[in-house]
Simulated scan of single mutants.
Amino acid sequence: MKKTILYDGTCNFCNTSVQFIINRDPKSSFLFASLQGKTGKEMLKKYKIKEEIDSIVLIVDEQAYTKSDAVLRICSDLTSPWKYMSVLQALPRFMRDTVYELIAKNRYRWFGKQESCMIPKPDVRKRFLD
């Protein structure tokens, strides 16, 4: 089963996170699309998510997950020790999302921003939908 991650393609932290996931996803379970691209915008519309969303989005089995739910579900499919972070789902969502929102709100200031989305390396290009 393929899972799709929608991410902010102009955010340095988000692009680094995508590379992190790729390097720890031995089954190539995840596909990727930037929120700014055609596919990302179509998927946001399909799942009735506002285009201005300030979150990573994970789509699995026609269900969309955002914020800490998305991150922790992604972690559950990564190699050890990262998959064990999924146990944090036991914490109340408001606690998890508060930490997520703090990072999301400051990501450009802390990590920088690019003018355009990254161009994936040829060996992983097939996992990108745009």
Rank of each mutant, 00 (worst) to 15 (best):
D8H: 06
D8R: 03
G9V: 03
G9T: 06
T10L: 14
C11R: 00
C11Y: 01
N12D: 12
N12Q: 14
N12F: 05
F13L: 15
F13V: 11
C14S: 13
C14N: 03
C14R: 00
N15W: 02
N15P: 07
S17Q: 05
S17K: 06
V18C: 12
Q19E: 15
Q19P: 05
F20H: 10
F20M: 06
I21M: 02
I21N: 00
I21C: 00
I22D: 02
N23S: 13
N23C: 14
R24L: 04
R24H: 15
R24S: 11
R24P: 00
D25K: 01
D25S: 07
P26S: 05
K27S: 14
K27A: 08
S28G: 09
S28K: 15
S28V: 06
S29M: 08
S29C: 09
F30V: 10
F30N: 02
F30H: 01
L31R: 05
L31N: 13
F32N: 01
A33S: 14
A33I: 07
A33V: 08
S34A: 15
L35T: 04
L35Q: 02
Q36M: 10
G37N: 12
K38D: 10
T39Q: 13
T39S: 05
T39N: 11
K41F: 02
K41P: 02
E42F: 05
E42W: 04
M43A: 06
L44P: 01
K45F: 07
Y47L: 13
I49W: 02
I49S: 04
K50E: 15
K50S: 14
K50M: 11
E51R: 13
E52H: 07
E52L: 12
S55Q: 05
S55H: 08
I56T: 07
I56S: 01
I56V: 15
V57Q: 02
Q63F: 07
A64W: 01
Y65F: 15
T66M: 15
T66N: 04
T66A: 12
T66Y: 05
K67I: 03
A70R: 00
V71K: 00
V71Y: 01
V71H: 01
L72W: 00
R73N: 14
R73T: 08
R73F: 04
S76M: 11
S76Y: 09
D77I: 03
L78W: 00
T79R: 13
T79F: 03
T79V: 13
P81I: 06
P81F: 06
W82G: 03
K83D: 09
Y84C: 11
M85N: 09
M85R: 03
M85Y: 11
S86N: 14
V87D: 14
Q89F: 11
Q89E: 08
A90E: 05
A90D: 03
A90T: 13
P92L: 08
R93Y: 12
F94L: 11
F94Q: 07
R96M: 09
R96H: 12
D97L: 10
T98I: 11
T98A: 15
T98V: 10
V99K: 04
V99L: 13
Y100A: 07
Y100G: 03
E101K: 13
L102F: 15
L102Y: 11
A104N: 04
K105C: 09
N106S: 12
Y108A: 09
Y108C: 10
R109T: 13
R109F: 11
R109C: 10
W110R: 11
W110P: 12
F111A: 04
F111M: 09
G112A: 08
G112E: 09
Q114T: 11
